[in-house]
Design a protein around this nucleic acid. Structure first.
Length: 467
RNA sequence: GGCCCGUUCGUCUAUCGGUUAGGACACCAGGUUUUCAACCUGGUAAGAGGGGUUCGACUCCCCUACGGGCUGCCA
């Protein structure tokens, strides 16, 4: 048992939608905390006032909510903590762990130009690092970290292992901008410390940053959290995620009709493994999820596998929860709301629909029989099944159906006898029946449709088709 | 350029010095069938390349190649 309770956080910057990679990072943090009775916090990294928007924040919250990731406490705005950040910067100044740098952007740029030209390191070396305060001009300045120039900074990463950085590779990063606002490098450390974050699980694009941030922890004498830098997700082509493939906002996946449980399962499994476990519940994921199980290589998105898992989750869901999520999907996708009758029929029909669909649109397509109202308009393929001969068989069928008890056994008897009487295989009879009942060729079994529709509606539809 | 990370079937991965390198998705063939989905049986398919270390390397070390990241008063 760990002495400290686990506290993780997800800290997106509100400069765009929450894409699938961010969603997975959030999910990993959530699973880790929730599986250990810890806390999962949410902090919006909005210190970049130029690029941060409230719309992006709203989209992120919406995406997390859809994914089913709940956070503890209020959402923290990093920007609102700016006074605290400045306070820490001044404290570092007082300790000699930081210094005022009066170099202008132009001077820094010139330094880099020259360094590049001479083939030296372009890491900026401020002339103010060791300047006597009495020489300080009355001009804007930034506060820079006084980073050690010798030795190395070592980070122990739960995913990447021990990673060493020569301190000559790390520059004196800016902690406080000349306008007094904090930079990300300072703000993350201060906030993570203040919020009591024990485990930092984030994209490995931050691996290098961890070394810099370690210096701040050390300067302030704070405990360093457990680092876990996870590989990024790539598109199906192995390239960085782009708009073309998968980099859309995570809520787009709801619009595409993937159930959240399937999404969680897939995302958890992407880059993490628990032996041969492929299909599992969120409860199991919470129980099993750990840091050593995370892989070190970037993983590609595979929609086929996503669909496969989603299909399994749809089949495994309770009818009530499934119906609820389907209704939410319809709304998110901008489809018309269902009437009470449609909801009722869909709900009662789920038992025979949910094991034949991988996504909600697919399920809805197969649920046409339950959603449509008379008179049905058969689609092209279905219309072909309703030829003259077939229609006459249907009209011959209805009187028998009127006398049926409407048990599955009874219906089976009637239909197989009818088929046999005409020297037909059951399939030959099922096709026009299916067309009459659903107006489609892709549906649940004809028996199930009859059961869901009930005797009156079934007979009415058959009469419509036979007419 | 410098620094850092990565590389097992098409894809996600298991393996944590000794396995006929396993599973899942996808794919192919056959079976079943009331359309779809599913299901059953079988099959194709992998350790980037080169050096070491070792009785023995996918596993450890080095080099190369190829990907990726960082190198901002962005996060």
């Amino acid at each position: 048992m760990s002495p400290k309770p686990v506290v993780t956080r997800f800290a997106p910057s509100p400069t765009g939608y929450l894409h699938i990679g961010g969603g997975r990072t959030a999910l990993f943090n959530w699973l880790y905390a929730r599986g250990r009775g810890g806390k999962f916090l949410l902090r919006i990294e909005d210190t970049d006032r130029e690029r941060s928007t409230p719309e992006a924040t709203a989209a992120i919250l919406k995406g997390l909510t859809w994914l089913g990731l709940d956070w503890d406490g209020d959402v923290v705005s990093q920007f609102e903590m700016k006074d605290r950040h400045a306070e820490v910067a001044r404290e570092m100044l007082a300790k000699g762990a930081a210094y005022k740098c009066f170099s202008t952007q132009e001077e820094i740029e010139a330094f880099r130009e020259a360094a590049r030209a001479e083939g030296r390191s372009t890491l900026f070396q401020s002339p103010w690092r060791d300047a006597d305060p009495s020489t300080h001009p009355d001009a804007p300045y930034v506060i820079r970290m006084r980073a050690p120039r010798e030795g190395e900074t070592v980070i122990e990463d739960a995913v990447q292992g021990t990673v060493r950085f020569g301190n000559d590779q790390l520059d004196d990063m800016v902690c406080l901008r000349s306008d007094g606002t904090p930079t990300y490098m300072l703000a993350v450390v201060v906030d993570d410390h203040d919020m009591g974050v024990t485990h930092v699980i984030r994209g490995d694009d931050h691996l290098n940053n961890a070394a810099r941030q370690t210096m701040v922890y050390q300067a302030m004498g704070w405990d360093i959290p457990v680092w876990a830098h996870i590989p990024l997700i790539h598109g199906p082509d192995g390239k960085k995620l782009s708009k073309r493939h998968g980099a859309v906002g995570i809520e787009e996946y709801q619009v595409m009709g993937y159930p959240a449980a399937g999404m969680r399962n897939y995302l958890t499994r992407l880059g993490w493994a628990h032996g041969d476990a492929e299909f599992f519940t969120t409860e199991q994921a919470k129980e099993w999820f750990d840091l050593p199980g995370i892989g070190r290589a970037p993983a590609r998105l595979d929609f086929k596998k996503l669909e496969n898992l989603c299909g399994q989750h749809i089949a495994a869901m309770e009818d009530a929860a499934l119906l609820h999520e389907i209704l939410a999907y319809l709304e998110a996708a901008g489809k018309p709301a269902l009437t009470d009758l449609q909801q009722d029929r869909l709900g009662r029909g789920l038992y025979c629909l949910k094991d034949r669909a991988k996504t909600f649109p697919e399920l809805i397509e197969k649920a046409e029989f339950a959603l449509a109202s008379r008179p049905l308009v058969a689609d092209e393929a279905a219309a072909k099944a309703l030829d003259t001969v077939s229609r006459s068989i249907l009209s011959e069928l209805t009187p028998r159906l009127r006398g049926a008890t409407w048990s599955k056994e009874d219906l089976e008897t009637i239909l197989t006898e009818t088929a046999t009487a005409h020297g037909l295989g059951f399939g030959k009879l099922a096709a026009p029946l299916r067309a009459a009942l659903a107006g489609r060729t892709v549906t649940p079994s004809v028996y199930d449709m009859m059961l869901v529709l009930g005797q009156d509606e079934t007979i009415a539809r058959l009469e419509d088709a036979a007419a």
